[in-house]
């Protein structure tokens, strides 16, 4: 197992990701959870960078680490309940959830390790060596998203914008005081 820089970076990011995710889930204070969520979003952006997906990484930082975290914090602030000692308690059947999740996790990891895709990955390693060398994917991504001339996802993209519009209006309608 060679310890080149991308590998070290991957493991660092992985540890931060898993650790912050666990913190989000396990911490008793909801505000702490929210802050660790931001950490987790940032680490995920790092993982995208490692995967040569710069555009996704930037979007991740902008939307998740920026907007969603702020939204969550707002929500926490607005729903603060002073009486409860623990703002982020577990439900009664947490043990059942734990069993299911652990077994499902083992099942997924086992499946990943034994699937045909894993075999394919043997000859197609992620070429992390080209880190930062070529950022041509953004152009290509842009073409794929809204090129009117070549094959593209322009229609789903437009629909997605409508979805966002609906969500904005919906959020206002649901959230306003009446």
């Amino acid at each position: 197992m060679s310890l080149d820089i991308p590998t070290i970076a991957f493991y660092l990011i992985a540890i931060v990701l898993v650790g912050s995710a666990l913190a989000v889930v396990l911490l008793r204070n909801i505000v702490h959870s929210a802050l660790f969520l931001a950490v987790m979003f940032g680490a995920a952006a790092g993982a995208y960078v490692l995967l040569n997906a710069e555009f996704i990484a930037i979007v991740q930082v902008l939307i998740y680490a920026g907007a969603v975290t702020i939204l969550v914090l707002f929500a926490i602030m607005l729903t603060r309940n002073a009486q409860s000692q623990s703002s982020n308690p577990f439900a009664k059947q947490w043990w059942l959830a734990l069993i299911i999740c652990v077994l499902l996790g083992f099942g997924l990891v086992y499946a990943v390790g034994n699937s045909a895709m894993a075999v394919a990955s043997a000859f197609a390693p992620v070429h992390l060596a080209t880190l930062g060398a070529d950022s041509g994917t953004v152009t290509r991504l842009g073409q794929l998203l809204y090129s009117p001339f070549v094959y593209s996802y322009v229609l789903p993209f437009e629909i997605a914008s409508v979805v966002l519009l609906v969500a904005i209006i919906g959020a206002i309608v649901i959230g306003r005081e009446d």
């Binding site: 390790g113 990955s121 197609a124 390693p125 992620v126």
Partner: peptide, 9 residues
């Protein structure tokens, strides 16, 4: 060596 598997796991 970081492969696809690492990210999947």
């Amino acid at each position: 060596m970081v492969t696809l598997n690492s990210f999947l796991v």
